[in-house]
Amino acid sequence: MENFTPLSALAGGALMGLGAVVLLGLTGRIAGISGIIAGLLPTGRGEVLWRLAFLVGLVGGAAIYRTLGGPLQAIQFSMSTFMIVLGGLLVGFGAGLGGGCTAGHGVCGVARVSKRSLSAVAVFILTAGLTVFLIRHALWGG
């Protein structure tokens, strides 16, 4: 567990939780990223400005961190472009069908103790873990 970073994980998670509380308390909205993005697509139902503002903030928050010289200055993609493109398609389709993503179900739904969200989290962590296991240890022999 040499890569385990408990303090930054707890601090970062708490900031995200705070962001979700701010959004619900002030605007009455759930901080589900896939839901916020879906509202901006051609099938979305209006209320464009606050959605755009949230996404600008999302990128801006990471930009502030980087500008202030946070420890993480580069990210690593170890997988092929094909896997990234396929992964994006499945993540988008799955979030659209299942009504939420890691933020919507994993943070906001769990915070509401929603049975739907708790089930979704259990299912997507399981299939994600199986996928990584197959890729890293079964198919290509680790």
Binding site: F54, G57, A103
Partner: peptide, 16 residues
């Protein structure tokens, strides 16, 4: 408010 919420979320994702 949405901008502030997004900023907190984005900062949290980077910090973690």
């Amino acid at each position: 408010a949405a901008l502030v919420s997004g900023l907190l979320f984005g900062l949290g994702l980077a910090v973690s």
